[in-house]
Amino acid sequence: MSDDGTAQGSQWYDAEAGPLVRPYAVTGGRTDPGPSGVRFDLIALVAFDEAAPDGSDEGLLGPEHRALLTLCRSETQSVAELSADADLPVGVVRVLLGDLLEAGFVRVSRPVPPAQLPDERILREVIDGLRAL
């Protein structure tokens, strides 16, 4: 042991951060979010599914899965927000969300594509009409 309490020569421990776990260890070496076919864009919205399996199934999940579920329970969040709040890389969060989606714990909704948003001209006409009232 060194003076700061860390094991000498240990590359898996950082005195300030604690033990280091590589991202591939968290996901079991997987990089694909799973067979669900859902793309987890950074702005995709993730919410806890109220019809999720009972809480006893959560005991089978890893700590990172449970952390994401806790964040999703409080409010619907984007993939980017979950990544920041859980302090995990986005790639890891995508894989973990794929697991949670497949198990039925979360729902994912995609934001409206820009091509389906109303035309700016129409919005300006609505604003002008409201001002005229």
Rank of each mutant, 00 (worst) to 15 (best):
M1A: 11
G5N: 08
A7L: 14
Q8M: 15
S10Y: 06
S10H: 07
W12M: 13
D14G: 03
D14N: 14
A15T: 10
A17W: 10
A17L: 15
G18D: 06
G18F: 06
P19V: 13
P19C: 05
R22A: 15
P23M: 07
P23T: 06
Y24L: 13
Y24F: 13
A25K: 10
V26W: 02
T27E: 02
T27W: 00
G28K: 07
G28C: 05
R30C: 00
T31M: 10
T31G: 07
T31L: 10
T31C: 02
P33V: 00
G34A: 07
G37R: 04
R39Q: 12
D41E: 13
L42V: 09
A44V: 07
L45W: 06
V46S: 01
D49Y: 04
A51V: 11
A51F: 06
A52Q: 07
A52M: 04
A52C: 12
G55L: 13
S56Q: 11
S56K: 09
L60W: 09
L60C: 06
L60Y: 08
L61G: 01
G62Y: 08
P63T: 14
H65L: 08
A67V: 07
A67P: 02
L68V: 03
L69R: 01
L69V: 07
T70L: 14
L71T: 04
C72E: 04
E75Y: 04
T76H: 03
S78D: 05
S78W: 04
A80V: 02
A80K: 05
A80E: 09
A80Y: 03
E81N: 12
E81R: 14
L82D: 00
L82T: 01
S83T: 05
A84D: 14
A84T: 13
A84Q: 14
A84S: 12
D85E: 15
P89G: 10
P89N: 10
V90F: 00
V90Y: 00
G91H: 06
V92P: 01
R94S: 04
R94Y: 01
L96M: 05
L96V: 06
L96W: 02
D99F: 00
D99T: 03
L100W: 02
L100Y: 04
L101F: 04
G104Y: 05
G104L: 06
R107G: 02
R107N: 11
R107K: 10
R107F: 00
V108D: 01
S109W: 08
P111K: 06
P111Y: 03
V112K: 04
P113T: 04
P113Y: 03
P113C: 05
P113R: 03
P114I: 14
P114F: 12
A115Q: 13
Q116C: 08
Q116Y: 08
P118N: 05
P118C: 07
D119G: 01
D119Q: 12
D119H: 12
E120W: 10
E120A: 15
R121P: 00
L123F: 00
R124Y: 06
R124T: 12
R124P: 02
I127M: 08
G129T: 11
G129P: 00
G129S: 12
G129L: 09
R131S: 08
L133V: 14
